[in-house]
Computed example of a mutant assay.
Amino acid sequence: MKLILKLAAIYNILWGLWVGLFPNQFFELVGMPLPVHTMIWQGMGMVIGVYGLGYWWASYAPMRHWPIVAVGFLGKIFGPLGFFIQYYRGEIPFEFFYTLITNDFLWWIPFGYILWKTHKDYHWKLTDKYAD
Results as ranks from 00 to 15, higher is better:
P33H: 15
A58I: 02
H65R: 07
Y51M: 02
P67E: 02
Y130T: 12
W56I: 00
G20W: 12
P93R: 05
E28R: 15
D128P: 09
G16H: 05
F111A: 00
L100Q: 02
I85F: 12
D104C: 05
G31R: 04
F97I: 03
I48Y: 15
L29D: 09
L74Q: 09
K6T: 05
W56R: 01
W18A: 05
M44L: 15
M63R: 07
F94P: 10
Y87Q: 07
Y130W: 13
G49E: 04
W56T: 00
L7E: 03
T127A: 11
Y60A: 11
H123G: 09
G72E: 03
I77A: 04
Y98K: 10
H119V: 05
K117S: 05
S59M: 06
I92D: 04
A58T: 02
W41T: 09
Y130C: 07
Y11H: 15
H65G: 01
D121R: 03
Y98A: 11
A61G: 04
W57D: 05
F22H: 10
P67R: 03
Y113L: 03
M44H: 14
M46T: 15
I48Q: 07
Y51C: 01
L14R: 07
I92Q: 07
A9T: 02
W57M: 10
N103M: 08
V47G: 08
T127L: 11
F26Y: 14
T99W: 11
R64E: 07
M32Q: 10
Y11T: 08
I10C: 09
L3D: 11
T99H: 12
W56C: 00
H37C: 09
A58N: 04
Y51H: 04
R64G: 03
L81Y: 12
K125D: 06
G72L: 02
G52N: 00
E91W: 08
L14K: 08
P33W: 11
N24A: 12
P93Q: 12
M32K: 09
L14W: 06
A70Y: 01
Y60S: 13
A58K: 02
F73Y: 06
G90I: 08
F78K: 05
Y87E: 06
A8W: 09
P93N: 08
D128K: 12
P62A: 02
F27D: 06
I13V: 13
F22D: 11
P35C: 09
R64M: 05
I68C: 02
W56L: 01
V19R: 06
M46K: 10
L100F: 01
M63F: 05
T38F: 10
I77S: 03
I114H: 01
Q25N: 13
H37Q: 14
H123V: 10
N103V: 06
Y98E: 07
Y88S: 14
P67N: 03
W57Q: 13
Y60H: 12
H37T: 15
G54C: 01
F97P: 05
F78I: 09
H65D: 07
W66R: 00
F84V: 05
T99L: 15
